[in-house]
């Protein structure tokens, strides 16, 4: 398990907390760890918390989009939560508005949506 992120399992939802200053290698490890745990634990939902990220550049943005796509293919609905307002504004300017990713303002908002769909 990479040191730059922690994966917690609650009911059938995997909570991923990404720490600041994650490196490219860390985030690729995370992609692998997360996809394996979705399958092994039959997770129906994934919540990725990026509140600790001061910035999201094109590399991290692409990985977040890929994490969402991988989870969707593995039948787990994925939410990205905790995005800072300045990060959202910067991502739009970079031309990366994460079209395939669902977002929620906070972990509790995401869990509420997942519960409403019977996925948590």
């Amino acid at each position: 398990m990479s040191e730059a992120a922690s994966i917690y399992s609650v009911d059938k939802v995997l909570l991923v907390a990404i720490r600041d200053n994650i490196t490219d290698t860390d985030i690729i490890n995370l992609q692998e760890d997360l996809s394996e745990r979705i399958v092994n634990e039959a997770a129906r939902g994934v919540v990725i918390d990026i509140a600790a990220l001061e910035i999201v550049d094109t590399f991290v943005g692409r990985i977040l989009a890929q994490l969402s796509s991988i989870s969707r293919l593995l039948a787990a609905e994925t939410y990205i939560v905790g995005m800072r307002p300045a990060v959202a504004m910067t991502l739009v300017e970079l031309g990366m508005d994460l079209p395939g990713s669902k977002t929620a303002l906070s972990l509790s908002h995401a869990l509420r949506s997942l519960k409403a769909k019977g996925l948590a």
Partner: peptide, 15 residues
């Protein structure tokens, strides 16, 4: 916002 924008640009250039 200015810091986020500039630090993001620095991250792209450094990479």
């Amino acid at each position: 916002l200015r810091k986020t924008r500039f630090v993001t640009a620095v991250s792209e250039i450094a990479r």
